[in-house]
Design a binder for these strands. Structure first.
Lengths: 128, 128
DNA sequence: TAATATATTAGCTAACAAGCTAACAGGGTA
DNA sequence: TACCCTGTTAGCTTGTTAGCTAATATATTA
């Protein structure tokens, strides 16, 4: 959509390094605000360790003043790095059993982008 | 809906124990078919250990001749026990980024059972 | 009663993850 | 040159998980 498209080619570590540098914060500074050690943050930025847990990711988004869209990108990258669902989603899925059920139906009926986008459109129309 | 409603009150261990006993298989027998030790299976049946990985769960469903519905129940219970998304879902979610996006929209717009059920109905109408 | 089946308990190991501290290298600047 | 700030490397500790074996308890049957 905009120039942020290029972010899609970054991994989680590169992404947060870039955002940190854009905001002119030092690694030690951010580490302190997150309550972790600088070497730990360094390892994560270098993509040698897993991303943090959701709590720290939320904090990081605040610290780096990420937009909602940037935050979603960050969370998707964190999920991808862990080879898991993006970490902001499990709670919503688990707490509502009809979501799991719908996901299975969609999967088993081979629902693709078209159907999911229509779902989103319907939602926006009705609720947004 | 039917008598299987009662299964909803079981945990994963109880569920697979019950199904195993219904099918008159011994724990050792099932363990051997799954390629794991009997004590390990025992621990899982007693709900003292995590459920197995998806591969073994699939195998188990075959070994115990579970119906599709029973298998879904089993997978939901496995997810609940791990306090995670049911283990058959992450792949579908991760492989299709529009699914994650739709889940976030639904969450943020507070889509509830009604909206999700409508989605399922629409899908069935169009694809099923 | 002895032998056999079955399930369970106890406890071990290997691997991995999340975190840390201490020490280092390299670039600016007094 | 000496100092300081930045990021990085190496390696440690602690906890957790998936799996196992060996030994025990409990039925069942010959």
């Amino acid at each position: 959509m905009n120039r942020n498209m290029r972010d899609n080619y970054l991994n989680f570590g590169d992404f947060i390094t870039k955002k940190r540098e854009e905001k002119q914060k030092t690694l030690r500074e951010v580490a302190k605000l997150l309550g972790i050690s600088a070497p730990y943050l360094s390892d994560v930025e270098k993509d040698r360790r897993n991303p943090f847990d959701l709590e720290k990711l939320d904090l990081l988004a605040d610290v780096l003043l990420l937009s909602e869209e940037e935050k979603r990108v960050m969370l998707d990258l964190a999920g991808r790095r862990r080879n898991e669902v993006a970490p902001d989603l499990p709670n919503y899925i688990m707490e509502n059993d009809y979501v799991s059920a719908a996901l299975r139906t969609a999967r088993d009926l081979d629902a693709g982008e078209e159907e999911w986008l229509k779902f989103v459109e319907d939602l926006k129309e009705r609720k947004g």
